[in-house]
Simulated scan of single mutants.
Amino acid sequence: MTDEVSSGNIETKLAYDGSSVDWFLQRLSNLTNSSDLEFGITLQVSGTTVTGTLIGGEKYFKLFAESFSQAWPYEDKEEIRDAFESNADIYKNVDKDEDLPPTQYVHLKDALFFDGGYKFPNEGTLWRGVLPRFYGHIHKEA
């Protein structure tokens, strides 16, 4: 974004740039990034349906670090966990009254994918997606 977009000038921004980002989904993602809020959501992404629980970036990176380090085959598991968990630092110590910059990603836990009548994986997984890539969303898991 070239300028900060407030509620009052979204229409002007869309008139110039088109609807490249779903501003409503972006606000929902910002909300999960600045709080402990989590909720079910289903997204349409390039012909594939993705469903799961929308979580904040801090929680996503903590869960990713834990999962990755558990699978790490070497002895330095704690160092690996700490290295990946440090990616969550961008979301820490944020003044809750201060507006975060518009998010560019959504983070899901327990994500499942549906494509051509197939569901994968068998158990939910962590998933991180780029906001402009979504074609629709439902605020409930499938």
Rank of each mutant, 00 (worst) to 15 (best):
D36P: 00
S34E: 06
N122L: 08
A111M: 06
P102D: 11
S29C: 14
E4K: 06
P132A: 13
G56D: 04
G47P: 03
S20F: 14
F61N: 04
V5G: 01
F64I: 00
S19W: 14
Y91D: 04
A71M: 02
S20L: 14
L126K: 02
N93S: 12
L54I: 09
E75V: 03
Y74R: 09
E98T: 10
E66R: 02
P101D: 06
Y74Q: 11
L37R: 06
A111W: 00
E78F: 05
L126F: 03
A142N: 10
S19T: 15
A88C: 09
S6N: 13
E11G: 11
A83L: 09
Q70R: 10
E58T: 08
V45I: 09
S34T: 10
I41F: 01
I55H: 04
T48M: 12
K119C: 07
T53P: 01
A111K: 00
L37T: 10
A142W: 05
G8R: 14
S86C: 06
T51Q: 04
Q44N: 11
I138S: 13
V45Q: 01
D99K: 12
I10N: 07
A71D: 01
V21M: 11
P121A: 11
L131Y: 10
P102Y: 08
L37Q: 07
V5I: 15
E11D: 14
P102K: 03
L108Q: 04
L28M: 15
T125C: 02
Y105M: 11
K96Y: 02
V130Q: 13
N87R: 09
K92S: 13
G116D: 14
S20E: 13
I10C: 10
T32I: 03
L31E: 05
K13M: 13
L25I: 12
P101I: 03
A15M: 14
V5E: 01
N122W: 03
A142K: 05
E79W: 07
K140T: 15
N9I: 14
N33Y: 03
I80D: 00
E78A: 12
H137D: 09
D110A: 09
H107D: 04
I90T: 12
Y16V: 15
T103N: 04
S69V: 00
E66Q: 08
S46W: 05
F39N: 02
E38F: 00
G18A: 13
L112Y: 02
H137S: 14
N33R: 03
E66C: 00
G40D: 03
F134R: 06
L31I: 08
Y60F: 15
S46V: 08
K109F: 11
S35P: 05
E123R: 07
F68I: 01
G129F: 07
P101R: 06
K13E: 15
G136Q: 12
K62T: 10
F39H: 04
L63A: 05
F114H: 07
F84A: 02
E98N: 06
P121F: 07
V106Q: 00
K109M: 08
F114D: 02
